[in-house]
């Protein structure tokens, strides 16, 4: 069964917390990964690869630069989950 956006947000927040230590509840839809959460490109790639594993989704490298906000990532994963 496909996960809802809320489920994906919760799962993504866990991955962000695991990689960076940022509190999971700070990972909200309107936050920007770089400007608000201060996540660097290396952490972002680690989160992306872990998200591929967790959600069974492919996130091509050229897509990653479009994932500006948490909502961008949540919507992409929800729409493309396998």
């Amino acid at each position: 069964m496909a996960l809802s956006e809320l489920d994906v947000l919760a799962g993504l927040a866990e991955l962000v917390n695991d990689e960076t230590g940022i509190a999971a509840d700070a990972v909200q839809m309107d936050k920007s990964f770089t400007d608000d959460l201060d996540i660097d490109s290396i952490s972002m790639m680690t989160i992306v690869v872990n998200a591929e594993d967790k959600f069974g989704v492919k996130i091509p490298d050229e897509e990653v630069k479009n994932l500006i906000t948490v909502a961008d990532a949540v919507k992409y994963i929800t729409a493309n989950q396998g």
Partner: peptide
């Protein structure tokens, strides 16, 4: 290669 961590080199 996709699973090789980005932090590997540093």
């Amino acid at each position: 290669p996709r699973r090789v961590l980005p932090m590997t080199v540093p």
